[in-house]
Computed example of a mutant assay.
Amino acid sequence: MYWNLAMMDWKNTTLDLKLRTNNWNVTTTDWNELTMFQHVRTVDVNGKTVGRGFIEMLHSLSATSVRKPLRHRIQIVLRIIQFIYYPILAIVAVPANIVTIVILSQEKCGLSRCVSHYLVAMAIADLLVTIFDLILRHILFVYLDGQHLLEGLPVCNIHAVLIYAATDCSVWFTVTFTFDRFVAICCPNLRSKYCNVQTAAVVLATVTGLSCLKNIFWYFMLRNKYHVGSRAWFCWVKRDVKSSPVWAAIEFCHYILTPGVAFILILLLNFLMVRHIVVTSRSRRRLHQQSKRKSVKDPEMKSRMNSIILLFLISGNFILLWSVSMVYSISRRIFFLGYKSLDLRIFAMELGYMLQMLSCCTNTVIYVIAHPKFREHLKNIVYYPFTPIVKCIKH
């Protein structure tokens, strides 16, 4: 039975490789890399990966590591890490974002209501990305290569729209938060008009609506059936889309906007804020020196520095964890357009996914580091279940 299933899987994979090679003009080496992991696991009668899959990959890495190319060994190592990494990340990311939403919604962390609104929106978007992308896509593909739990439901293109819309919201909420802090720090004349709760609500609602509209095209590009044999795409691509330069241009613009343009805007706004803070601090220092108040601390500059530290941590974290995924996505689309010299290996895609998913829970760590009041509220939430036990012990 195992042999028959293995032969059927091999034939289906070979046919799929031929079809994709003809349509996408992809090299055989790349498709071997894409499907290499499908053959290192033990599959039971129902087609589900059993517990021996993890052991099989360890054995494959140790027994034949000398004969395998370096890129194949890197891919196997990444897949072994994903077996442990993705579930742990999901276990941490979901409660971390929920706790962040609860704490920031109370508006007791010493942040303005406007800033709290942006940070809550970012946490909600990260939570949705964790559910739609990390749990319902990556974890299921790592553990169930032969069968997706949603495989029988014709909702793959809808799933894709939800993933990319939530991802766009997560990215552009970071951009809008950066712009809000830029106005608050560098544009005092516009601060009262722009940096308020009403404007934040309008901006967040607009970004959410545009993100949903922008990613509707995935519904028409992808079929509604799940394709579990591919790591790059989890939905079947429609046949007329594969060779269409119009759809290729739309997809290329998608990767340019998110996160390419977002990267540029965040870097530009941060640079302008740093320059403004340096110039302002110098002028204020001169005023203090002229008034002979060298020992007096400047509360306004201290408040600005706290805000800028939080902003730089969030922006730097975003840029660092999204860089690999952005470079791979753009280079892959350029490769499909005929520029073969810009091809990157598949393990770059796997690493990009892992870092991108990590960004869904790192903001909570940043808040813990940057804000003592957030740490205090987090401790209260963690200790709350144990409070009755402590009271019983005392009494």
Rank of each mutant, 00 (worst) to 15 (best):
I216C: 10
Y194V: 13
L213D: 07
A184R: 03
K242Y: 05
A232M: 08
T167G: 08
T206A: 14
R231V: 01
T167D: 05
V241G: 06
L222I: 02
L204A: 09
T167V: 08
R181T: 04
N224E: 15
F220E: 14
I163P: 00
C195M: 10
V202I: 08
L204K: 11
L210K: 11
V183I: 15
S170H: 09
S230E: 05
F177D: 00
I216K: 06
Y164M: 05
T206R: 05
C235Y: 00
R223V: 11
K238Q: 06
V171M: 09
V197Y: 10
C169P: 06
H227M: 08
N224G: 12
P188R: 07
F220I: 15
C186L: 13
L213M: 15
S243G: 12
S170T: 06
R191S: 08
S243C: 09
L222F: 06
N224T: 04
F182I: 02
C212H: 08
V161I: 14
C187D: 12
C195W: 03
I163T: 02
T208N: 09
T174N: 10
L213F: 14
A232L: 09
A166I: 15
V171T: 10
S211D: 07
A201Q: 14
V197M: 09
H227C: 04
C195E: 14
W218S: 03
Y219K: 12
K242C: 08
V237A: 05
F177K: 02
Y226I: 09
P188H: 06
D180V: 04
F182C: 04
Y164T: 10
D168H: 03
F182K: 01
G229S: 05
K238D: 05
F182A: 03
Y194K: 07
W233C: 13
C169I: 09
V241A: 12
L213A: 14
L190G: 06
T178I: 06
F177L: 09
I185M: 12
H227Y: 13
F179S: 05
N196E: 08
R231P: 00
W236H: 10
I163M: 10
S243L: 10
F234A: 02
A201G: 09
S211I: 07
G209V: 15
S211M: 07
L204M: 14
H227L: 04
I216Y: 06
V203E: 00
L222A: 02
S170V: 05
K214M: 02
A232H: 11
R181V: 07
Y194I: 11
G209N: 15
R223S: 14
F177Y: 15
V203A: 04
Y194R: 10
T178P: 01
R231I: 06
N189M: 10
S243T: 10
T174Q: 10
N215H: 15
S192H: 13
L213G: 15
L222E: 02
V202H: 07
R223H: 11
V171F: 03
A200T: 08
S211A: 14
V197T: 07
Y226P: 00
A200Y: 01
T178K: 01
A201D: 14
R223I: 10
L213P: 02
A201W: 12
F177Q: 00
K242S: 08
I163G: 01
V228D: 00
W236C: 02
K193I: 13
I163K: 00
C235N: 03
H227G: 02
